[in-house]
Amino acid sequence: MRSRRLTALALAAALLGPAAAVGAAAAPATAATTVRSHCTVTMSTTRPKQYSSTTARISHVGSRAKVVVKAKYKTTTNTKSTTATTAGKASVTYRISRATVGRRVPVTVTAKKGSHVWTCSTSFVPRHR
């Protein structure tokens, strides 16, 4: 049994070079695993008029998680950050201004707390005022 392991290590060292032999002898590293979950995001108005506002309402994220919301317009991406409440909710308001009428604006949300990451997305479509 020991000879098989040594043979496997020797083969790995021959194929991968000297770094493989050093890594094989070292204790295995414990990698931090990221836990991914889904959150929920809704827009207060999915068809907002130009020069009005719409609010992204986020829920089902961790208590006090750091939340980043990105709205991708035709020529720019508007990024806003906030912190979720202890109930795991947050909101971010976007001013529509002169956004291209009829062009869908994807909104993505990423919330992080420790090794836990929540993601969700939605969109809105600006219309004439």
Results as ranks from 00 to 15, higher is better:
Val61Pro: 03
Cys120Glu: 04
Ala27Gly: 02
Gly23Thr: 06
Gly17Lys: 03
Thr42Cys: 00
Val35Asn: 04
Arg127Asp: 06
Ala65Pro: 02
Lys66Gln: 15
Ala12Asp: 01
Ala90Cys: 09
Ala21Val: 07
Thr75Val: 02
Thr46Gly: 00
Val69Trp: 07
Thr33Lys: 12
His60Leu: 05
Ser3Met: 11
Leu11Val: 09
Val69Leu: 09
Ala32Met: 04
Tyr94Met: 01
Val69Lys: 06
Pro126Ala: 03
Ala65Gln: 07
Ser91Met: 13
Tyr73Asn: 04
Thr76Gly: 04
Tyr73Val: 01
Val107His: 01
Arg104Gln: 07
Ala87Ile: 10
Thr54Pro: 11
Ser44Lys: 03
Thr33Gly: 10
Met1Cys: 13
Ser115Arg: 13
Ala13Gly: 13
Arg47Met: 10
Thr46Asn: 01
Ser63Tyr: 07
Ala99Arg: 11
Thr7Ile: 15
Lys113Arg: 15
Val67Trp: 02
Thr33Ser: 12
Gly88Ala: 00
Ile58Gly: 02
Val61Gly: 05
Ser63Arg: 09
Ala10Ile: 07
Ile58Leu: 04
Val107Ile: 08
Thr83Trp: 14
Val41Thr: 01
Thr45Lys: 12
Arg36Gly: 04
Ala71Asn: 06
Thr93Tyr: 10
Leu9Asp: 10
Leu9Arg: 15
Ser115Ala: 12
Thr33Phe: 12
Thr83Cys: 09
Ile58His: 00
Thr30Lys: 02
Thr54Cys: 11
Thr108His: 08
Thr110Lys: 13
Thr85Glu: 10
Arg5Gly: 06
Phe124Met: 03
Ser44His: 04
Thr100Asp: 10
Val68Lys: 07
Ala31Met: 04
Thr46Pro: 00
Ala21Met: 09
Met1His: 12
Met1Tyr: 15
Pro48Phe: 13
Ala10Cys: 07
Gly23Trp: 10
Gly114Ala: 15
Asn78Ile: 05
Pro28Val: 09
Thr122Ala: 01
Ala65Lys: 00
Gly88Tyr: 01
Ala14Ile: 11
Thr108Arg: 14
Gly23Leu: 12
Lys49Met: 15
Ala14Glu: 09
Ala32Thr: 05
Arg104Ala: 09
Ala8Cys: 08
Val68Tyr: 04
His128Asn: 12
Pro106Asn: 07
Ser52Cys: 13
Gly62Gln: 10
Arg127Val: 14
Arg4Leu: 12
Ala20Ile: 05
Ser97Glu: 04
Thr30Phe: 01
Lys49Gln: 15
Thr7Asn: 15
His128Lys: 14
Val67Ile: 15
Thr42Arg: 04
Val69Ile: 09
Ala24Glu: 03
Thr30Tyr: 00
Ser81Gly: 11
Met43Pro: 10
Ser37Leu: 15
Lys74Arg: 10
Arg103Ser: 05
Ala31Arg: 05
Ala71Met: 11
Ala71Thr: 06
Thr122Ser: 00
Thr122Gly: 02
Thr122Asp: 02
Arg2Ala: 13
Thr45Glu: 11
Ser3His: 12
Ser52Pro: 12
Ala56Phe: 07
Leu16Asn: 10
Ala24Pro: 00
Cys120Ile: 10
Val105Asp: 06
Met1Ala: 14
Val117Asp: 00
Pro106Lys: 08
Thr55Gly: 00
Ser59Met: 03
Val61Ala: 07
Pro18Tyr: 06
Arg104Cys: 01
Arg104Trp: 06
Arg129Cys: 05
Tyr73Pro: 01
Leu15Val: 13
Ser37Cys: 11
Ser97Pro: 00
Pro106Ala: 08
Thr110His: 06
